[in-house]
Design a protein around this nucleic acid. Structure first.
Lengths: 348, 348
DNA sequence: TTGAAAGCGCTAACAT
DNA sequence: ATGTTAGCGCTTTCAA
């Protein structure tokens, strides 16, 4: 309700008290006893004047800018960044913190965003969130030392900073379990071929479910290529052209799944009845617009944004136990989003 | 280069001058004559100490927070918002301004984001950018009065605030011209059925090109439905099932184009040789991942973000002529992005 | 060409 | 229970 030009002294005057009292009342200052009647009068006065504190003066005085920085890679190219921002933003607002976002290029080996961190520091942020575009390990810029920080979607090579990442294994488990429970036993896995955590962990999840259900794993059904549509298509063709083709495909991501859809169409395979498909990432634009809608696994971007800010707040208030979080990254659930690409296999 | 704890007095002391001089030198204060040698000494001192000004103190003293707010609708659901943010962010940084983003729901008739604007005002932003998710008319929240503001992707019903929007007509002209120049004469238009500027203006562009090239317009080839994949598919089927089907389709957006791709596939039509398609929006996730890549029109989101901040800066420095901008919205180019979905028609 | 000092609006230590 | 006052770090007026 801040009306420009109204200061704490105006409120004090109208309420007939000192500025100290106003400050105490409006901030509910700990241990400051103010008569209830005075309180009311001050509140009343503030309201009628439309008083709102001058954050700059507050900031200067308390040495707390109320700003937290979010360093985000590739904000433009992916909707994922948007959901992280949204989560962080909402959580920040709930704590009366203001989120300042700096976009940055993908880290080109070694540079490590030092300048971007500096830009944030120069703007007096109290802490920084460091979000990468996809789950991986990073080395933190040296100037991030000494400032509370939290990593989103990546882990600190040095293991000093708390981090939050998606539970990749869990997501894969959910996806493959869904397939198995629909009755599938021969399931292909179109995996990424990058050496990133997601590649390995989603595979672990895949194997885990198969073993758990006593299903044989045909290694030739686990294939790898870059995680794009075209390679996904090629991989799908490779696997589906076989006489003993799988009845279901688990795809590393939605783009590869999109390639698989094309392969299925070319082969005259009906999704989901001739072939079930599950993706990963829940990219709305793809998943919701394919025919039929793609059942896929959602990455907890929003939740990671929230978690990161909450953790930062704890860190800022010096709660010791939160430092321990750096020990190992926190893993957040990757829930399955069911659309229409999974059905029981035809002959079972 | 701010190192925490280093203040202007430290610099003054090291340089052997007063804080006044330091301030003058570091800010290149107008009309303040400082001996070149002193200047150098001050700069030197600032550098060795790693001095950076305390923005909060600066802000308080000058009454300029250095913050500008961006009210963005639906940041999470669309990559478009990301590009606006990116542009605004970069431009802001160039002017040493900090961008504060507030996400907001889509305006439900009447509420008009008053609270969100207030949140920004409470944070002492100097000006606000108001970005909508798609091109339309809005009524501005009353509390935005008195604060410099610029609209992005929408126009002010009251016509008071400068606005920047995509040149929809120009984009459609580029798209259809591309088709015509490839040799197409029978072109279908799968249009949106919402009453928004884009619907009307893209149609205008379509007609304009046809007339300009002396091509007959078959009104039955101009069809409308909600701008989603499924309706796009249905529309495409409707138009392509005809014996005198068009050789090319101009689609209101990439999602409708995606539906058209499916229709073409079902009908055994090869894109681009049997059917050329042009979309609108350049949604990377769709356009780049379709087979073949979708030729489409890009919306100037990044550029609108930049333009908005630049305009805000002018507004803030009180340049009168910029107020006149409110008169009519500035239209920015929608460039054609050529991929692989257009070829000359088969029999021509 | 340079410096002293006031004061931006607020909080908090200290008085009363 | 409430008030007086110093001072956060900076810019800027005014004086030297």
């Amino acid at each position: 309700m801040a009306v420009r030009g109204v200061g704490i002294r105006d409120v004090a005057e109208l309420a007939g008290v000192s500025v100290t009292t106003v400050s105490h009342v409006l901030n509910d200052t700990e241990g400051m006893r103010v008569a209830p009647e005075t309180r009311a009068r001050v509140r009343e006065a503030a309201k009628t004047l439309g008083y709102g504190p001058n954050r700059m003066a507050q900031a200067l005085r308390t040495n707390r800018s109320g700003l937290i920085g979010l360093l985000s890679e590739e904000i433009a190219t992916t909707p994922h960044a948007g959901r992280i921002i949204l989560g962080a933003q909402n959580a920040a607002r709930a704590h009366d913190l203001t989120l300042v976002i700096i976009n940055t290029e993908r880290e080109s080996s070694g540079t490590s965003h030092k300048d971007d961190v500096q830009a944030l520091i120069d703007r007096q942020v109290e802490a920084v969130l460091y979000a990468t575009m996809y789950h991986r390990q990073v080395s933190l810029p040296p100037n991030l030392q000494g400032i509370p920080a939290v990593l989103i979607d990546s882990t600190d090579r040095a293991g000093i900073v708390p981090a939050v990442v998606p539970d990749e294994v869990g997501g894969a488990v959910a996806a493959v379990t869904h397939l198995v429970e629909a009755g599938h036993r021969r399931i292909g896995f179109l995996n990424n071929d990058d050496d990133v955590p997601a590649t390995h962990e989603r595979l672990i999840g895949f194997r885990q479910v198969m073993q758990q259900h006593g299903l044989p794993i045909d290694e030739s059904l686990i294939v790898q290529a870059p995680s794009e549509t075209l390679p996904g298509y090629a991989l799908a063709r490779e696997v589906l052209d076989r006489p003993d083709r799988p009845t279901a495909l688990f795809c590393y991501n939605d783009r590869m799944a999109m390639g698989a859809y094309r392969a299925a169409a070319e082969l005259g395979l009906d999704i989901p009845h001739d072939l079930s498909i599950v993706g990963f990432d829940n990219q709305e634009l793809i998943a919701a617009n394919l025919f039929p809608g793609l059942t896929t696994v959602a990455l907890p971007h929003y939740e990671m944004g929230v978690w990161a800010v909450e953790t930062l707040v704890h860190l800022l208030s010096g709660e010791a136990e939160y430092k321990l979080l750096a020990d190992r990254p926190t893993r957040l659930d990757c829930p399955l989003v069911i659309r229409g690409s999974v059905a029981p296999p035809r002959d079972n």
